[in-house]
Design a protein around this nucleic acid. Structure first.
Length: 604
RNA sequence: GCGCCCUUAGCUCAACCGGAUAGAGCAACUGCCUUCUAAGCAGUAGGUUGGAGGUUCGAGUCCUCCAGGGCGCGCCA
């Protein structure tokens, strides 16, 4: 690749510098020169709205100020057009050469222009939370998809990321199950289960799946039964035998299923920890908080008050020990902060959890800060997400009204994908293994893209028929566009059907001059927006900005593909430049999809 | 009762720090497969951004009130 260094500024940032300097030259704040992509593409490529804001400061008419700025910018070699529109908008176009040079910088940058803002800092992300002994269900889908996406984005931006599954293995539900095994005399049988034997594990999980709803119902009806479960919970937490032994066995058996589910989804965790892992940190932590007079007795429980005088809402204390001596999730969550800070020294801890737990995390963060169990420079962030609803607008359920298992949901998506693949007749020449692989990638892309294109914080309607229709703004559409580029490049490089090395092509193509013309311009401008979209997504922990960007890029490419000759272009320089644009589009699209946890098949 | 969130096209959703004519997808309608994958492209139609005030040169976005919906509020997670 021709020599150019790291790219540190996006196109709009560079233009903001230029226009900002023009404002400075008129003794106006440089930040008024902020340039953004025009929302009137029919009028201009970029716009600056600063002249209108400057009117007050300068005591002049916006159009007069805009006139001054335009005067300063006129003749700038990189701008092909600068003019004023409406009340004082400054409209800008860049030259094709400048745009091409920018793309060249981007192509030469190891991260396609995304700044390495993480600079090696560690961040812990918490996006699992499945309970052991229970099958994973659709409620685990959003945290997994969003959390993994945030992890991938942060890693790309130069953070050292640690995703923790943080399974629920220390609560009352375990007391219910363990007490049931003990009361029915099943202890020896359960403890005799061979954890190397898949069949025995599956049998146990099946048994637990049937058992749990029954016990939960029994505890609800019968206070004595509930007491028994709560007592067992305390015994587990005191690591008494055989209570704790039962828990450990169930936990080990449960992890199998979790790994299988997350593997199907293509969601990765670095740490497979649970609430139980921090148990030994709890007693010293509470002792310390008591010594500091932060933890106090209240109604027989030990709590940390977190209410402030200026609170408008009620703010209950964080409970550390219940009256019966048992710990709650606030306790383990607090101890988990202690553990994470001491083991990993993170700059941030991010919780990707259902929005409904917002209050709990506010209590937790306040307790953590007040109790100084963490350092003040460790940012604790609650990235809450909305509920996944069914087409009726109510929380997603099976037709029968029950909770749908995650594996069933994935299987349904897989069926749809396979069905559509058969209809399309395109996959006919694939063998069964490849067909399955493509169907799986299509199914996961459908599910993930459908989720991630929604704003994280809002509820969304899960409608598999719509997602898997594979038309319009869907994951499969994204894959389709990526695969078309790959196919085109494969043809350009005449390697028959052998898998091509995109990186080699990428270097080859960008080692030549790249020039742009009319039909290439909108795709090129779209490519230049990558790092801005990435930044928006990262800054707010909102992957939908990247999903939206990816769709627009795929769409721009599809237009370009339909309207421009590429392989059939006679002029070798134009053909070469367009191929360079294609390979950069592929790289950016692939990276964008990768950040969303979506993998592209070789063909489809 | 207290508090938080939401209401944008028939449906599902976007709109970065308040900016021009509020954008997509689906559904509907019209074109386009002897150039590279039609799971596609180009186009038409569809809106008083729940309602009423206010701030502002400018409001889907900020403030107040109202209507409708969702969620959370001490020993479950």
């Amino acid at each position: 690749m021709k020599g150019f260094g790291f790219m540190t500024r996006s196109l709009v940032e560079k233009l903001s510098d230029v226009v900002g300097a023009a404002f400075s030259a008129r003794d106006l704040p440089a930040d008024l020169g902020a340039v953004r992509v025009s929302d009137r593409p029919d009028l201009a490529q970029f716009q600056c709205n600063g002249a209108m804001a400057a009117a007050k400061i300068a005591g002049k008419a916006p159009r007069d100020i805009a006139n001054d700025i335009v005067g300063t910018l006129a003749g700038h070699g990189d701008l092909s057009r600068v003019d004023i529109a409406g009340p004082g908008f400054i409209n800008l176009d860049v030259t094709d050469d400048y745009l091409a040079a920018h793309l060249r910088d981007m192509a030469g940058d190891s991260h396609l222009g995304v700044p390495q803002s993480g600079s090696g800092q560690t961040v812990v992300l918490d996006y699992g939370g499945p309970n052991i002994a229970k099958p994973m269900h659709v409620g685990h889908l959003r945290s997994a998809i969003i959390g993994d996406s945030l992890r991938l984005m942060m890693r790309y931006a130069g953070f050292k990321t640690l995703g923790d599954v943080h399974m629920g293995d220390w609560g009352t539900h375990m007391g219910m199950i363990v007490s049931e095994f003990i009361r029915t005399g099943a202890t020896d049988r359960i403890l005799g289960i061979d954890l190397e034997d898949e069949e025995q594990i599956d049998a146990l999980m099946g048994e637990l799946g049937v058992m749990y709803p029954q016990i939960a119902a029994a505890c609800k009806e019968d206070p004595a039964r509930k007491e028994e479960a709560l007592a067992a919970t305390v015994k587990i937490q005191n690591k008494e035998s055989p209570y704790f032994d039962l828990l450990q066995l169930i936990r080990k058996a449960s992890v199998n299923g979790m790994r299988r589910n997350y593997a199907l989804l293509g969601v990765h965790f670095d740490l497979w920890k649970g609430e139980a892992d921090v148990h030994d940190l709890i007693a010293p932590m509470v002792a310390d908080l008591k010594a500091k007079k932060l933890a106090v007795e209240s109604d027989g429980a030990t709590v940390i008050p977190v209410k402030r005088d200026d609170d408008k809402k009620e703010m209950p204390p964080l409970i550390l020990y219940k009256r019966d001596g048992g710990v709650m999730y606030g306790t383990t969550d607090l101890a988990t902060i202690v553990e994470r800070v001491s083991l990993y020294d993170p700059a941030r801890i991010i919780y990707v959890v259902d929005q409904r737990q917002h209050l709990h995390f506010e209590q937790l963060f306040r307790a953590a800060m007040a109790g100084a169990v963490t350092r003040p420079d460790v940012a604790l962030f609650f990235a809450g997400f909305g509920t996944m609803n069914g087409t009726d607008g109510k929380p997603f359920k099976t037709r029968a009204g029950g909770v749908m298992k995650l594996e069933d949901l994935i299987a349904m998506a897989l069926d749809k994908a396979r069905e559509r693949l058969d209809e399309a007749a395109l996959a006919q020449d694939m063998d069964e293994a490849e067909k399955n692989d493509v169907a799986h990638k299509v199914a996961i892309a459908a599910i993930k893209f459908a989720d991630l294109q929604n704003q994280r914080t809002s509820d969304y309607v899960f409608d598999l028929d719509r997602f898997a229709a594979f038309e319009g703004k869907t994951g499969p559409y994204m894959l389709y566009q990526a695969v078309r580029i790959k196919s085109l490049l494969r043809k350009a490089y005449v390697t028959n059907d052998i898998d091509i090395d995109i990186d080699t092509m990428f270097r080859d193509l960008w080692n030549n001059d790249v020039s742009l013309r009319e039909g290439d311009r909108s795709l090129a401008l779209q490519l230049a927006q990558f790092s801005d979209a990435f930044d928006a997504a990262l800054r707010h922990y909102m992957p939908h900005h990247l999903a939206e960007y990816g769709y627009q890029l795929a769409n721009s490419f599809s237009s370009f593909y339909a309207n421009c000759h590429i392989l059939s272009e006679d002029d070798p320089a134009i053909r070469q430049s367009r191929l360079a644009l294609c390979v950069l589009t592929y790289k950016v699209l692939e990276t964008t999809l990768a950040m969303l946890g979506i993998a592209i098949p070789r063909r489809m």
